[in-house]
């Protein structure tokens, strides 16, 4: 049980990041700066918390940073019609360099950490309580993020608008939906979640700042959005499975230390394998033949992903 609880807790930052990017991409915008955004928000979040002594200040600062970056992506992609991938990539490098430069004095410093808090009543439930409800607010927040986003996208009118804007912007425009305003909103909200991801690393999971703190979390998250088929539930499940697999790999590593090189590369080999399998013809055939499994197998990118829309 402890192991499962550990997996759930360790998944939180990845889940925040993947859920955030899912919202952004559902509206048709790609925020490629994710890896840099997470790194910079983790660093700023920790710095703010260490300076002020308050975890909340840290989270707010982290969210502000990544929303600013998301805002630049949105503005240059929507208003200036620049290539979103180009701007996202430049922001990835810039944010990473900013984190390295300004984070230097904070390396090795200690700071506040999100306090543990067992949810009353819920944590008393046998098994489930220990696995899911004996963590802290940062981890519970990741549950809320998944549930709220899943519900929002699938069941609410606004969520439908977000999907419409990402799939058929012209049709959405014709129905009176302010396409670009929805895209701004989705990108900024997605950015806020990315900031949570960064803070969840530097204020909870690892607590502190060093150069390789967020080890490529953003790139893994970007791949997981695809692997999760742009569906928050599936995305969260994939994150849990992935962290579980990493845990098993870690145990394996203790037994066979000579495989350490292979194991540290596991996420990336898995990433390639997953994306490849997802696109094989056979996989698609299976998904088509068993409609009930389809939500777990197939997943198409939003049709208008990465494109610009101008209503004139």
């Amino acid at each position: 049980m402890e192991v499962l609880a550990g997996v759930v807790a360790a998944s939180a930052p990845l889940i925040y990041a993947v859920v955030g990017e899912t919202i952004t991409e559902k509206a048709g915008v790609v925020n490629l700066s994710l890896d840099g955004s997470i790194m910079l928000s983790a660093m700023v979040g920790f710095a703010a918390a260490a300076t002020s002594g308050s975890v909340i200040v840290g989270f707010v600062a982290a969210i502000a940073v990544s929303m600013t970056i998301a805002g630049v992506v949105a503005f240059s992609g929507i208003a200036l019609r620049l290539n979103q991938i180009a701007v996202g990539f430049v922001l990835f490098l810039l944010a990473k360099q900013l984190a390295l430069f300004f984070g230097d004095p904070y390396i090795g410093r200690t700071g506040p950490q999100v306090a543990a808090w067992d949810l009353p009543l819920l944590s008393d439930i046998p098994v489930v309580g220990e696995v899911f409800f004996s963590h802290n607010l940062s981890v519970y927040g990741s549950f809320v993020a998944v549930i709220a986003t899943g519900f929002f996208l699938a069941r609410t009118r606004r969520g439908l608008e977000v999907r419409a804007v990402g799939e058929r912007p012209e049709a959405a425009h014709a129905r009176g939906i302010p396409v670009n305003r929805v895209r701004y909103a989705a990108t900024l909200v997605g950015g806020a979640f990315v900031g949570m991801a960064g803070a969840a690393v530097s204020l909870d999971q690892i607590a502190g700042w060093r150069e390789n703190l967020t080890v490529n979390l953003g790139w893994i998250a970007l791949a997981f959005v695809i692997f999760g088929g742009w569906n928050p539930w599936r995305v969260a499940l994939a994150c849990l499975l992935y962290r579980g697999l990493l845990f098993v790999a870690g145990e394996f590593q203790v037994e066979f230390p000579e495989f350490v090189q292979v194991l540290t590369q596991l996420p990336f080999l898995l990433m390639i394998l997953a994306l490849t399998v997802l696109n094989t013809e056979r996989f698609r055939v299976v998904a088509r033949r068993f409609p009930r499994l389809r939500p777990f197998l197939a997943g198409e990118a939003p049709t208008a992903l990465g494109t610009t829309f101008h209503p004139e």
Partner: peptide, 29 residues
Amino acid sequence: GVIQGALVLVVLIVGGFQVYSAARGPVVT
């Protein structure tokens, strides 16, 4: 690294502004 990254970002955005205000036309790919 900060200087290099910021430089490219600023030039991209300034370029975007120029194209935007000059033509409001061609979509930049």
